[in-house]
Each structure stands twice: as C-alpha cells, then as structure tokens.
Nucleic acid binder design. Structure first.
Length: 117
DNA sequence: ATGATGATTGTTCGC
DNA sequence: GCGAACAATCATCAT
C-alpha cells in the first residue's frame, strides 16, 4: 500500500536527467483520447472538469477487457519509452545513415520539408 | 530484495 | 500556452 496517494503536482517539474528518458504514456491517456469525443458527445456542452470525472468514473467501472485496448496502447508506448531510455543511457549519437542532411550544427531555420523519419 | 518516490503522459475547457 | 482534475505507470532510486 503505497502511502503517498496522489499529491498534487507542484506545477512545473524540474527534470533531473539531461535527456529525461521519460516513460511511456498511460492507459488513461489513450482512453481519454479515445473516449474524450464519446464522453463529450454524451455530454453536450460539458465542461472540462466534468469530462475528466466522467471519463475517470467510467474508466474505473470498466473491466480489464474494456481497458485492454487502452492498456495495450499504453504497453506499446511503454516499449517506446524503454527504447528511448536505452538510447539515453547508451549515449548513442543519433546518427543519420542518410547523407541527406548531415547533422546541421548551424541552427538554420528552413522549413522546406520535414518528412524525415 | 524491497519500498518509497518521483517524474511523466494526454485530454478537455476557458481566458 | 497554461493550468488543473482524472487515472495509470512504472522505472528508478534509495536503503
């Protein structure tokens, strides 16, 4: 039983790590993005506070089966976070095999096409 | 090995 | 653009 239940976020959090490997998203994050429209649809003109409550309320009533798809997304995102963390620790200089635009040490502002990765 | 902590994630809404 | 409820998370640190 964890003690700290849910302390309010102080507001801005100062990251400790230089690359802040951050973690994956949460199932709720996917759930909100997915149901947000549905909830709003069922609550025309609903306010932000209500939506959050409605979402959370249902989310908790839901069964693992309902959350399954969301958890799945969360899990998928988690993997992403793992990889990013690994890279953060590995200290691998993201290199671009493509000789298209060798790292540009000079911060030029050109927005031609950002269709990179 | 275990526990506790912190940091993070995304949405909506308004001004 | 930011903040704040809503919930999960879960990786890492510390002992």
């Amino acid at each position: 039983m964890p003690k700290a239940v849910a302390e309010k976020r102080g507001g801005g959090k100062a990251k400790k790590d230089p690359n802040a490997p951050k973690r994956g998203l949460s199932a709720f994050m996917f759930y909100s993005t997915a149901q947000r429209e549905n909830v709003k649809k069922n609550n025309p003109g609903i306010s932000f506070g209500e939506i959050g409550k409605q979402l959370g309320q249902q989310w908790r009533e839901m069964t693992a089966q309902e959350k399954a798809p969301y958890e799945k997304q969360a899990a998928a995102d988690k993997e992403r976070a793992e990889r990013e963390k690994k890279q953060y620790e590995g200290g691998v200089p993201a290199k671009k095999p493509t000789s298209k635009k060798a790292a540009a040490p000079v911060p030029e502002d050109d927005d031609d096409d950002e269709d990179d990765e």
